[in-house]
Design a protein around this nucleic acid. Sequence first.
RNA 1: UGGGGCGUCGUCAAGCGGUAAGACACAGGAUUUUGAUUCCUGCAUCCGGAGGUUCGAAUCCUCCCGCCCCAA
Length: 346
Amino acid sequence: MTKSVLVGISGGVDSAVAAVILKERGYRVEGLYLRNGFPLVSEQNAAAIADRLGFPFHVLDISNPFRKDIVDYFAKEYLAGRTPNPCIVCNKKVKFRYLINEADRLGLDYIATGHYARVEMGKEGFRLLKGVDGTKDQTYFLFQLGQEELGRLIFPNGDRTKAQIRKIGKHLAIPSGKESQEICFIPDDNYRGFLESYPVTLPPPGNIVDTAGAVVGRHQGTHTVTIGQRKGLNIASSRPYYVLEINRGRNEVIVGRDEDQLSHGLMAANCSWISGTVSDRSFNARAYIRYRHRGVEAEITPLTGERVQVRFETPQKAIAPGQAVVFFEGDSLLGGGWIEGRFRDV
RNA sequence: UGGGGCGUCGUCAAGCGGUAAGACACAGGAUUUUGAUUCCUGCAUCCGGAGGUUCGAAUCCUCCCGCCCCAA
């Protein structure tokens, strides 16, 4: 009764090593590469890895849903003056969904990826825990997963460090691309250029104003800036300016000083919870307002309609609508939601 | 064309006879499975122009050019 698993192979070391670990643990491994329609060399790497490690390799073309659910969303958010997080949406709507679909179709028991996160069975169902390597923890990108996904998931890399993974990868002579990864469908990391080549109507140039309303510069379309941004504003001053807010209605970008970025809390919508439910009372947890954020103690107050109000113990900078806020209790990810806006004091 | 002030890196700005600080901006890199942030490095052989004084000037003198005030 050998257990079988479908590993999402991306072409990088992480997923390759995940497959290796599973093989060593005695799983019957098959690999799946999700072709998103944005040609990259990674598909060849993925095939080479499967070939080298000797397991069946499948390719599934998910170009259409990827374009519709991820790329269109990505562009739409920027045009609306928000800061999208395509990886989170992709994980929920594309990556893990199709991985599970294919596992079902192929008759495989589990699915696995190279994420740095852990799944554990608790008394209230499956729990999603931070990876042991705190610096590489990727649970932030997984907050929308639920019990159904977690029940099928294995994260072999979650209890290892990146250094250990690299070592195994090197030992296996896995073809390694460059380590840095940007948005997978924008290889040159130039999202502004990508938007400009995407079939959408871009916002026109407009004014950059300070907190007093004075015009201090010009922007080349609100989609070219994001909350918290400093570089590229082209405003010479005694101190740097940061983007505080994007006003699509007036087509203005509001900038201010470093301290103006501080917020006491935020409102988030479309929340989801790992356990499937959340108490209707306020509770305390550690809030993370972006990937690799150090986290801040906060009081979370659930509101109607899957919304929450979050108050920070200490003010936080650069709250960006469109980004996700997630909540932890220790190493356990409780859930999260999408940032709608910040508030400075109540 | 009477009086006064000022002209130093794209911007702001130190320096006031001893051989061009700093900040912002900008560029490149590092970090990063989102966007930012952060970090590192680079960035005026030259101080509006031309002469002069001096061992030596952005710093003193002369003239010119350009701004800005005040008064006509």
